[in-house]
């Protein structure tokens, strides 16, 4: 068993790291907004029921519509991995709050099952993704050390988070909090911060495609 003080320190540091992460994110967004947005002068084209606003909304929601893009429609297993992995991240971060601030809630059997299922599934996906990133020639060619490290880090974090759910105050839980702290400090400087840019890229692209009548995407009848 880890001492109560040591565990408390790990928990506190993880939450301070969250504040640091938020501050770095503010700086990153400020840096990003320093680039002047290109102006679109063209008159709208395409179908009458499309427009920049609708295009932007559609674009932002596209990640929840796997049937829209060929890349997600034809690779349902990869899409499922994406969903499970990101649900695992949400569960892992939520756990870092529920353990110190809502211990009784976290100890409920149903809550434990939910946490363990989500985080456990994300761990399995993490392993699959590691294999794909190393084994697939295309993935290997486009991967940076940051890509590899971020994936290993998250997968290991899922592993410790899985055991931390059981609330035994043991080594797994202790490492989980230290890893959470490191993870939160590392995220703003790594590719993991992609979700910070997602709203911007999808908004601008969707706005443009909405103006041009491409979004929402219309697909013809399926091939027989």
């Amino acid at each position: 068993m880890i001492s109560h003080e040591a565990m408390h320190l790990a928990e506190s540091l993880a939450h301070y790291a969250l504040i640091v992460m938020a501050l770095v994110y503010i700086l990153r967004i400020r840096w990003f907004l320093g680039f002047v947005a290109g102006k679109e002068r063209q008159a709208p084209t395409g179908a009458a029921d499309t427009n920049p606003k609708r295009g932007s909304n559609y674009s932002l929601a596209i990640i929840a519509m796997p049937w829209v893009m060929e890349s997600t429609r034809t690779k349902p297993f990869l899409y499922l991995q994406f969903v499970l992995f990101h649900l695992g991240v949400v569960a892992g971060i939520t756990l870092s709050f529920t353990i110190p601030f809502a211990a009784e809630f976290t100890a409920l059997p149903i809550v434990q099952i939910i946490f363990k299922s989500l985080i456990g599934a994300a761990f399995v996906v993490g392993v699959i993704r590691i294999i794909r990133r190393i084994g697939n020639i295309y993935m290997r060619a486009i991967s940076t050390p940051d890509d590899h490290f971020a994936l290993w880090l998250l997968t290991a974090w899922f592993g410790f988070a899985y055991f931390a759910v059981s609330m035994d105050g043991g080594m797994a839980q202790y490492i989980y909090f230290w890893m959470t702290m490191f993870f939160l400090l590392y995220v703003p400087f790594s590719k993991i911060s992609h979700y910070l840019y997602y709203p911007f890229t999808r908004h601008y692209f969707g706005k443009s495609m909405g103006r041009r009548g491409v979004y929402p995407i219309r697909r013809g009848p399926a091939a027989s």
Binding site: K75, Y138, I142, K191, H194
Partner: peptide, 8 residues
């Protein structure tokens, strides 16, 4: 800046 190298 947004590419995550997902390979999709």
């Amino acid at each position: 800046v947004a590419c995550v190298h997902c390979g999709l």
